[in-house]
Structure formats: C-alpha cells, structure tokens
Design a protein around this nucleic acid. Structure first.
Lengths: 208, 208, 208, 208
DNA sequence: AATGAATGAGCCTTCATTCAT
DNA sequence: GATGAATGAAGGCTCATTCAT
C-alpha cells in the first residue's frame, strides 16, 4: 500500500478529487482540473486509478476507511439519538474546508446518480442507516426492519439532510440562519426534540 | 409546423427542455437531445434563445409564469397540514411524466445552483414555505416568523424532500419501497403523524 | 442524399479516408490526418459519419456503389476466366494512384481484421467470389458450391492476391519484376494457363 | 527470477514480444501487454532494447538466428513438391500456439512493411523461395531463375499464403472450412494436384 | 423564420517514454 | 540490474456554437 515515503501524489490526487467532486459532482468534474490542483500530470489518474471512475471509487473508499462514525448505541437510546443527530448535523453543516466533502459528494450523487452510487450506498450510507435504525428500534420497541422504524429513520435523516440540500435556498428564505455553531446546536436540538416526540407517540401507539 | 401566432417551435423547445433538464440537470442535458425531442433543428436554440443558458432561463421563467397553485389554509390546521404533506408528496413522487418537472429541476438547482435559483426560490418555494408556516403557526400558536415555526417548517419540508432526493438511494437500502400510490399514502400518513406529534409537543411546551 | 450542390466536404472526406485507410489500415489511420487531407475539421467526421467506423463503412460502401465489376460469364467460360484474372490483376497491381485503394484496404483488413470486415466481405468480396465460382463451375461441370470448385476458386484468388500481398517482398526476391503493363499481362497469362491446366485436369477426373 | 548468465528477462521479453507482435502487428501491440506477459516491468523494454522498435528488431533478429529449417529436395521432385506444400500449409495454418509466430509476423510485415522486412526476406523467405524454385526447375526442366519458374513458384506460394491471409474472410464465405487436420490435408492435396497439372502443362509446352 | 453544414474547444483515455531510486 | 512513479503527446469523441443560405 505505502508505495513511497508518503505516496504523495496518490494522496494528493484523492484530496484534490474529493474537493472537486464535492464542488461539481462526478460528471462535471474534470480530470484536468483535479490533476492541476494536485500538481500532477493528467496521466497520473490513469496510472494510479486506471479511470476517472476508479479515482471516484478511491475517494469514496478513502472516506469509508477514515470514517467519521457517530457514536454507537449507548445504554440510553434517546441520548444516542441526540448524539447521532448532533454529530451528523455538525459534520454536514460545519467544516466545509478540509476533509468534510463527503456529504456534498453524496448530495451530487443523489441529484444525479453516477456509476459510483452503489459504492457510496454500501460504504457510506448503509452503516449510518443501520445504526440509526437500531437506535430507533430501541426507542419504539419494534424490530429494526419494521416499516415504521424505516419510515422514522427516513424522517430523521430527511430533516438532517435538508440542511445540506436546502442550504443554498435557506440563505434566501431565512437570512438570519447563518449556521453559526450556536445556531447549528439549536437546529440539532430542535430536530431531536421534534423527532423524539414523534417516536414517543409511535412507541405509545404500538404498545397499546 | 404551421405558423402559429404563438410561435409553436419556441414553446415546444421549452417543454422539451423542461423535461430533459429535469431528468438530467443543466450540464448533462444536451441541446441536441432537446431539439430532437422538440422536433427542431440544432440551431433553433441559438435562434430563439441565443444560448443553452438562455433556454434554461426561459424554462425557469416559464415555471414562474405558470405556477402550480398551492392549496389554501382550511379552517382545521391539522387537516390542512395533512393535506399539504399529501399533496406535496404526491406531486414530488408520482407524476413524473407530463408537466411535473418543476420540482425535479429544483433538485438539480439545489445540488448545483445556477443563476436561475433566485427565480425558483421566489416563485416556487417562497409561497409554499409561507403557506406551511402559516399552517404551523396556527397549530403551535406562535407567530409565523418565529424561529421555532421556521425550524418546524424545515423539519416537515425536509421529510418530504427526502423522498425525492433520496429516491435513488432508497432503491438500494429499502427495496420493498416501490412508491406505489398506497405506499406513498402510507409515507404521507407517517410524516403527518410524526410531525403532528412534534408540533403538539411544541405547542404544549410553548403554552406553559 | 445530395445535401449540397456537390456535398463537397462529405465526398472529400471519403476520398481522403480511402487513401489513408489504404496506406495505414483502419487502426493506424487517424481521424485528424484524414480531416487534414480533406481540408475539414475533426468534428466533420462525427457530423457526417458519426464515427471513425462509420466513415470506414462509408468508404467501403462507396466502393461497392461505384463498382469495378469484372465482366459477367460470357458464353465461353475459359475466356471469361482469362478476362476475370486479367481484370482483377490489372486493378490490383496498376493504378495505385487515384481511386484504386480498394484492395489495399482489403489487405489491411486481412492482416488485422477490424469491425469493418463483415462489410467488406459482403460488399466487395462476396460478389467477386460468386462470379468466379460460377465461371469455374462452367469449366469443371460441378455445382458452384462443390468443395472442389471452392478450392479451385481459392487457388486462383490466392495467385492473384499474392501480387498485392507479396509486392513489398517481390521487390527483394525478383528485382526484374517492375509491374510494367507488359509484365502484368505476362503474369495474368501465366496464372490463366496455369489454372486452366489445373481445372481441365479436374474436369477430366470428375467426368470419369 | 534468478540471475542466469543467459539473461532470462531479456529472452522472456523477446518470446512474449514475438507472440504479441504476431497476434496484433507492430503498431497495435503495446509494451505494457508484452511486459505483462513476460512478467517484467514496463521500463524493462527501455532498459534492454532502448525502444519499442529496438525490441521489434531484436525479435526479427531472433527469428533470423533461430530459423526453422526447410526440407531438402528429395530424389522425386513431384513428391518433394507435395511435401513442401503440405509442410508449409501445416505450419501456417495449424500450430499457432508455441513458437510458430514467425509467419504471422511476416503477414503483418507484408501489410505494413517496417525496417525489419529485409531481414525477414533474406532469412526466412529467401531460402524457401530458392528451394521451391529448385523443385519446380526439376519438374519443368527449366533453369531455376527462368521467368516461368519464378511465376510458377509465385503461383504455388500464392495459393498457400492465401490460407493465412484469407483466414478471417474464409470464415465468412466458407463456414464449413474449419481447418481441421483432415481439411488442411484436403487443401494441401488440392493445391498439389492443381499445381502439378499446371507444371506438367508447362513442361509439355516447353519441351516441344 | 429556420436550417443543414461546419467549427473549435475540451474531455477521457492510452501509450511510449523517461526519471529517480 | 531493475523498477515504480511520473510525464507529455496524441487519439477518438462530444458538445455548444456559428455561418451561410
């Protein structure tokens, strides 16, 4: 794996590609721009990753290998849910600079699925989806593949994801929302309480 | 074909472009395919709209001019919310064919905003957002520009929008979900009850 | 079909492509060089023929449409055979300049078959092969799809084709052979008498 | 692997290159594939042969150094001719695998002569050509550099060579011909009898 | 008012080659 | 003695655009 002291070029390519894929999406991104930003030759992509798609896969896998997993199910599932939401939202919204392009890549992949979608689903989305469902399962006392659990998971994910998808729009319809750390905490708190109310209702209903 | 006062070719181009931009997004769509579907020459776009971007603008403007009306606030706000969710979700998820490309264009516009975004926000999103906030305001007894109302509106919109954004992924993680009319109704019902629980909780809290 | 007064560019492209395909073979030929020789843009190939392969097909078909068919079976089959050999050999060996690239293209196709081979077989080779077999059939009094007729046809074709395939070598092993018109006539006469002796032998054998 | 005095890698490269040049021709062959088959590094070619062309030259030279011996003239020239035809045709058509790429390289060299052609002519073709002419000379009672002998030699070589050159086409126009050993023997027999008839005719003519 | 023909820029990919170890 | 890494040139193809009619 370690080809050279640091395997510099390969890593630089993945970094640059991550940024540009995040900015422009898979199809719009050009190998030339990626290589230019990485300070490498156009043919370097072919050498290290065979393909544009190979590079894309390497970027995704790089995320999966250096994961940013939210905490596991603690003893208190409600606390776990709050943690999950807070962690996800923080990652989604803050950061931007540095290594946090994972999620913008996902957004592009959702709007216009490419050949890389299966990789993303398997490596990035699947584990988080499973974790969230296990948390919900503990709260509503239903098996984690129950339809209601799935629907609830999507309700929560939808609320979180909205703040990435909707970010360009939010600037127009809600100028006061600047995504300061405090505001993000406020949003996370809202989503958590809003969702917990929904889940408790479900728990109550299903119990009877 | 015939020389209509309404300039048939121009209209046909806009229709065709709307569909294809909705399917593929702005960058991926090609003038050739649009013209082919409109039964027009490749140079027609340049002739009528000067540019690919000019055509895109015309499509956006066409949406703004022919908006699809949102429902009004009925006397019972909870019923109004159920109706709103059901109507939005139905439009987003079903349909597809025909004239329903407005919303898919929005999705692409979110993933990769263009100059047309402000128009879309003002003409399409703004009215619905205002309507939803007024409904929520009636439920939680808070002014419609209160932060909590806004957050709740985003929670609900997020849940709905998730079923467009997430559709390609849902096929992988939840194969049973086929978006049959019955399933869509089930989803709408879940979102409504889930959200109403959240809103009632807020109403109770804010009352005290 | 006639796009323009003379459909100039399209025709020029076919001419230039014919020459270059004949010189270099399908794979080694480059679109850029063809277009340069035709005085056209690189994209012209895509416009007129969609593909490099499309251009290749057009070249082959152009040959098939402007055919150089040797005469039909006259009443005297031996005379017909002499005519066939003479005509083929003359075309193969002489000319060179101008429109006579058909056969060099075939040679390349034989040495390294490309996707265009089926077209060539069907449009160029098939008809000549059938004609030759019908001539032989008349000489040896056997049906034209008899194995012996086929073998004899290949024996004759092989002798003729050898003077294309072998031309670069012939210059080394037989310097005196310069392919003057007289020499070509001498070769054609030899092949005809050589082959007629073989065919008469077969006719005699099969009669008994 | 081990450090043989004979320089194993170099030899392996020549072997692999011979096979691949024979399969694909000079231009279409890639250094990468050759090195892969030889189990060597991409840079090995540059190291050992300076060039792709240098490698090609080494392959040609390797053929010249390890020639595959032609048969000798037996006492009965007609029997010798039958043997010659049978041997050539067998080598050309069968085999393939192993070390039999000499002749396919010739085919490519004919279609697109390179600097290596003279070597091939001198080392490979020349001796066989001389042998065949001496056999014919014995049959027709003419000196072996007589034009008629030369023409007859070309007639026979042409018939044989046709079954290499024409092989891709034969599959289309004569599907039944599968080049089984029996069929190859049938072809060899036909060529021999067909040609002997021609030669006897010449012998009779020249005698008178 | 509208179109077939033509163009130039750009993209992904492949390849032979060289460099630094 | 040999190799992994990197490079520049070129190829086929696609696309938005413009020109002349």
């Amino acid at each position: 794996m370690a080809h050279h002291p640091e395997d510099a070029a390969r890593t630089r390519l993945i970094e640059a590609a991550g940024e540009i894929f995040a900015e422009q999406g898979y199809e719009s991104a050009t190998i030339r721009e990626i290589c230019a930003r990485a300070g490498a030759n156009v043919a370097a992509v072919n050498y290290h990753f065979r393909d544009k798609l190979g590079l894309y896969g390497a970027v995704i896998r790089h995320i999966a290998v250096n994961p940013d997993l939210p905490g596991s199910v603690s003893e208190d599932p409600e606390k776990a849910l709050r943690g999950f939401i807070s962690a996800m939202l923080g990652k989604l919204v803050l950061g931007g600079q540095g290594r946090q392009w994972h999620l913008r890549i996902m957004v592009h992949e959702l709007a216009r699925p490419s050949d890389g979608l299966p990789i993303i689903v398997e490596e990035l989305i699947g584990p988080r989806y499973a974790l969230l469902r296990s948390i919900i399962s503990a709260i509503v006392h239903l098996p984690s593949d129950h339809d209601t659990v799935r629907l609830s998971a999507h309700s929560i994910i939808g609320q979180i994801a909205h703040y990435i998808h909707g970010r360009p729009v939010l600037g127009h319809v809600w100028p006061a929302m600047q995504f300061t750390p405090e505001q993000v905490e406020q949003v996370a708190g809202h989503i958590a309480e809003f969702s917990l109310a929904g889940l408790r209702k479900i728990a109550g209903t299903s119990k009877q």
